[in-house]
Design a binder for these strands. Structure first.
Lengths: 343, 343
DNA sequence: ATAGCTTGCTTAAGCGTTTGAGCAAATTGC
DNA sequence: GCAATTTGCTCAAACGCTTAAGCAAGCTAT
C-alpha cells in the first residue's frame, strides 16, 4: 500500500513544524493563536494531499482507540443480527467504531477475543458471554476495563447488564397458554448452566404451579447441545404421543422453536389444532411456517442502544480505583400474537 | 482501566534495558546472544506480570496491524453469517484478526467504513460491496491497498474477486425446472444494477431460449427494494393466476424466496402441486416450509477461506508500484434437491 | 525608553515498540 | 601477554501523533 500522508508531509509542504499542523487540524488554531492565513494554508494542503490521520498513532498517545469491542456468542443467531445494527449506530453517534468478534459459544475463544481486544486497546466491551464465563468477567472487573454484558448475566458476579427478565417472560408465556385453554403444557429448553435459561425454566414451573397445572418431570425437556437434533426429535415424539399427549409446547429459544416446529411438521401435526406452540424468541423463519407463530420479541434495538449508552457513560467516568456502581437493566419483551396458540 | 504492563515495567523489575526485554519476548534471545539465565528471568517476569504487548505500539512501528477489515453489505443476510466464520478462522490461522463493518447496502456507509478501516491501518480488506461502488474499488486500487471482493463484482473495474458463476447457476436452475416438466417458468429478481443479479436474469433468459420456452416480459419480475413487500405480493398474485398461470417460480435470492413463499402460503398455493419453486440461495427459514425447498447452495466456506488466502498472498507480496495481477475465482454452487419442483 | 504583554510559531518529550549500532568485559588464539 | 573475537548487554532513533513549554519578534502602556 502506498504510504499514507502524515503530518510531517503536510508540514514539509507548507514549511512549518509538525506541531503547528497538528494544532490546526485538531481545531486548536484559535486557542494556539495560529495566523488566519497559515491556518487556511494548512487546511488546504491537508485537503489537497488527502490527509487521513493515523488512528494508530493517535491511540498510542491518547491511550484511547475510540473503538468498542463487541463479542457475540454466535454471529448467526437472530439475536446477534438484531443487536448489531443498533449498537453500531449508537456507537457511531458517540464517535466510536465497533469491532465484532465471534466466540462461537466457546469459552476459550471468548478468552482469546478479550485478550485480542485488550491488546488492540478497545476502550470498552459489550459481551454476549458464553457459558461459565464468570472468570472472564472477574478479570475485566479487576482490570477496571469498562464493559457491559448483554443477554446473559452471571448472578455470582456483579456487573453491568442489559437484558430482559427471563423469568417473567417465561411465566407470562406459560400463563398465556393456560389462558387459551391449554392444560398439558410442555417446555423444551437447553440443558445448560446459563442463568437466563434456568430462569426460563423457573418461570415455566412457577406458572404451572400458580395455575395448578399438573407437572411431570417428563414435561420439561432439557436438550444437550451435543446431541441436539436427536434429542429434540425424541422430545417432540414423546411429548406429542401418549402417555404425555401434551396440548402445548413452550420453546425456550428461537433455535429450539425452529427445530421443534420442523419436527412437528414431519410428524404431520397441525398447529394449533393438534398442538399449540409458543416461542420465547422471534425468528425470521417463522414467516414460512404454516401458521403465524405466537412469540415474544426482545427489544433488541433498545438493548443495543442502552448498552452503548451505559458503556459510554462508564468510559467517560474512568477514574482508576473509583468504586463502581454496577447497573442492571431489564427491558420489556413484547408479545407478538400469532395463531399458534388457538387464539 | 488499569495501566497495562509494558516492556518498561518488566525491564524495571528485572533491572535491564527495554530493548533486551523486547528481544527476548520476541524470540530473538538466541540471535541476540542473551544469557540463558537472563532469558528465563525475563520470560518468567513477563508471565508473572501478565504482560500483553500493546498491539497499537507494535502497529505503529511495523506499519502492520495484523488486522483484516471485512465489510459486508448487510450483516443479517444468511450469506454474511455463512461467510464470517470461515473468514475468521482462516484469518486466525494466518495470524490476523478480522474486524467487521456493516454497510447496510449503503454507498456512503461503505465509503465511510473504508476510510475508518484505512485510518485504523487494516492490512487488507474483504468487501461485499454495495451497489455502484466502482469508485470505491478504483480508490483502493489507486491506494494499492490489498483487497478482495466477494459475492459482488464490477465488470468495469478489474479486481480480485471470489464468488460464483451467477449466470451458470441461474441457467442450471431454470434448466432444472424444465427437466422436471415445468414449462411456464417465471423468475423473481431484484431490479438492481448489480452485475451478479443481472447475470442471474441473463442465465434464466438464456435457459428459456435454449429450451425453446415461451418468454413474456411479465414472467421476469424485477422488484424495487423500496417497494419490496407490495411488489413481491403483486408479482406472486399475477404469476399464479391467469393469464400467466405459471407452473414454476425461480427466486433469484433467498430473501426473495422467503417473501415469495410466504405469499404463496397466504394464497393457499400448494408447493409443488400448484406451483414449483426453486431458490438461488439457501436459507435457514426453509426448514419450516411445508416441503423441502430445492435450492442452490453457495460454497460459503470455500469462498471465505479462498478470499483470505488470496488476500494474505497479496499482503505478503506488497511491493509498492509492482504491477498487479488480479485474480478472479468462480467456485461451484451445489444443488440441494428438495421436493419443491415435483422431484 | 523599556518592562511586560501578545502574537505566531518551534522545540522537545513522550506514548510502547523495534532494531541497528555500540561498547565493556570475558574469552580465545597464537 | 596481547590482539582479536565473542558474549551480553545498553543506547538511541524511529513510527505518527499530541501538547506543555519556550522563544523571538512586534506591540502596548507608562
Amino acid at each position: 500500500m502506498k504510504k499514507n500522508v502524515s503530518l510531517k508531509d503536510i508540514a514539509g509542504q507548507v514549511g512549518v513544524s509538525v506541531s503547528l499542523v497538528s494544532y490546526v487540524l485538531n481545531g486548536h488554531a484559535k486557542k494556539m493563536r495560529v495566523g488566519e492565513e497559515m491556518t487556511q494554508q494548512i487546511i488546504e494542503t491537508a485537503r489537497k494531499l488527502h490527509y487521513q490521520p493515523n488512528q494508530i498513532a493517535k491511540s498510542l498517545k491518547s491511550k484511547k482507540s475510540q473503538t468498542i469491542g463487541l463479542i457475540v456468542a454466535e454471529i448467526k443467531y437472530g439475536y446477534t443480527a438484531g443487536i448489531v445494527r443498533s449498537i453500531e449506530e449508537e456507537a457511531a453517534k458517540n464517535g466510536y467504531t465497533v469491532i465484532i468478534g465471534n466466540c462461537h459459544e466457546d469459552l476459550r475463544l471468548l478468552h482469546e477475543l478479550i485478550q485480542v481486544f485488550i491488546t488492540r486497546q478497545v476502550d470498552g466491551l459489550i459481551i454476549v458471554a458464553s457459558e461459565k464465563a464468570e472468570a472472564e468477567v472477574q478479570y475485566l472487573k479487576k482490570k477496571e476495563m469498562p464493559f457491559v454484558l448483554i443477554d446473559r448475566i452471571f448472578p455470582s458476579v456483579e456487573s453491568n447488564f442489559i437484558g430482559i427478565d427471563n423469568f417473567q417472560v417465561a411465566f407470562n408465556a406459560t400463563q398465556y397458554l393456560h389462558k387459551h385453554g391449554l392444560r398439558r403444557i410442555a417446555m423444551i429448553n437447553y440443558a445448560s448452566t446459563f442463568f437466563h435459561l434456568r430462569e426460563r425454566s423457573r418461570g415455566y414451573l412457577e406458572a404451572l404451579e400458580a395455575h395448578k397445572l399438573r407437572y411431570k418431570k417428563s414435561l420439561l425437556r432439557e436438550i444437550q447441545k451435543s446431541s441436539y437434533d436427536t434429542d429434540v426429535q425424541t422430545a417432540i415424539r414423546e411429548l406429542t404421543s401418549p402417555p404425555l399427549s401434551c396440548d402445548a409446547i413452550f420453546f425456550a429459544t428461537d433455535t429450539l422453536a425452529i427445530t421443534g416446529l420442523k419436527n412437528l411438521i414431519e410428524l404431520k401435526k397441525r398447529i394449533p389444532e393438534d398442538i399449540a406452540a409458543i416461542s420465547f424468541d422471534e425468528s425470521e423463519s417463522f414467516a414460512l411456517f404454516q401458521c403465524p407463530v405466537t412469540h415474544y420479541r426482545q427489544p433488541l434495538n433498545d438493548i443495543g442502544t442502552t448498552a452503548i449508552k451505559t458503556l459510554v457513560e462508564e468510559m467517560k467516568n474512568e477514574k482508576p480505583g473509583k468504586k463502581q456502581k454496577w447497573k442492571q437493566l431489564y427491558l420489556e419483551s413484547t408479545l407478538v400474537i400469532g395463531k399458534s396458540c388457538r387464539e
